[in-house]
């Protein structure tokens, strides 16, 4: 995996593209959320403790949340924060092997995604899988930086990618299998897309949950890791597009695209990180082996 590869640039081009595309789509999706809709920070900011800290830092109440007649610090910054995501989106395209400043910015972008995941975690009454299942999204900017700085096939890069996949699938699987209450939208999407009743939807979700955990194990076993990664890529893609498939309709404004498409786009790491691993673990073709 981390051995010498003569034609490194050719061999790693596609896996690297997967990470670049995944990070680009993830940030682009979240840029859309922050620009067109609103970032989910209210759950973090509307706290006694947050205001206490703001007070210590010299902000009055009116400055913090607004006077009622005008916006305060919170609303203004929530409305502006989309710029940070847009910058990160652009950086995923422009970042190169020695672009240390851009790489640092992308790592900071990963911090933004961690914050979003933390907000989702708090909003879910601190259900652990809610944070864990965002592992792919949180780690993909760092993975891109690692792939550029260390190489896509470097042990650290691959291990981090494995961790990202395990987090995504373990989090998802914990809900699907019922270790934590299965979210209603899991049933809803299954029922709407497949047209099945509750019992069938539940059986399908439980099965998918078991397979999620098998992926987490299989991806660590050399003999089955490629198959596991391929399954994870396929399943990750299906669960990502499930939202627009279930929700979009001809009768809605813009067919509902503004409501649903970003939900699939920002989940691109869920299938592109496994695809990265699948490609990294492919056997070199004879021509590549001969060069080696």
């Amino acid at each position: 995996m981390s051995g010498p590869i003569v034609n490194e640039s050719h061999y790693s081009r596609l896996p690297l593209f997967c990470l670049r595309l995944g990070a680009f789509l993830c940030f682009a999706g979240w840029t859309w959320v922050h620009y067109y809709w609103e970032g989910p920070y209210g759950v973090l900011l509307w706290q006694d403790s947050t205001f206490e800290l703001a007070t210590r830092l010299g902000l009055s109440w009116d400055e913090f949340v607004g006077s009622g007649a005008d916006d305060g610090f919170v609303q203004k910054w929530i409305a502006r924060i989309w710029w940070l995501y847009l910058v990160c989106t652009v950086l995923t395209v422009t970042v190169r092997e020695r672009s240390w400043i851009q790489m640092s910015a992308l790592v900071a972008g990963s911090g933004l995604l961690v914050l979003l995941s933390y907000a989702s975690f708090v909003a879910s009454q601190r259900q652990l899988p809610m944070f864990v299942e965002h592992g792919g999204q949180m780690l993909i900017p760092i993975l891109l930086v690692m792939a550029l700085g260390l190489g896509p096939g470097h042990r650290v890069t691959v291990t981090t990618a494995i961790v990202a996949v395990i987090m995504t699938f373990a989090g998802h699987g914990s809900y699907a299998i019922g270790l934590w209450p299965t979210p209603g939208n899991f049933y809803a999407m299954t029922t709407v897309i497949l047209g099945v009743d509750y019992e069938t939807a539940q059986a399908l979700l439980r099965t998918a949950g078991v397979l999620d955990f098998l992926v987490c194990v299989g991806i660590c076993i050399p003999l089955v890791r490629r198959g596991s990664a391929l399954y994870a890529a396929g399943w990750g893609f299906l669960t990502a597009i499930a939202r627009p498939v279930a929700g979009m309709s001809w009768g809605l404004n813009y067919w509902g695209g503004d409501q649903y498409l970003h939900e699939a786009v920002l989940r691109a790491p869920h299938f592109l990180i496994p695809m990265f691993l699948f490609l990294i673990w492919r056997r070199p073709r004879p021509s590549e082996a001969q060069i080696n």
């Binding site: 973090l44 403790s49 800290l53 830092l57």
Partner: peptide
């Protein structure tokens, strides 16, 4: 600058630190 620092601190450290106090 003060507000920007406050923003950064709030987003990353504020809730967790003070939530523990609470």
């Amino acid at each position: 600058k003060s507000i920007a620092c406050c923003c950064f601190a709030l987003l990353f450290f504020g809730h967790t630190a003070l939530a523990q106090q609470n």
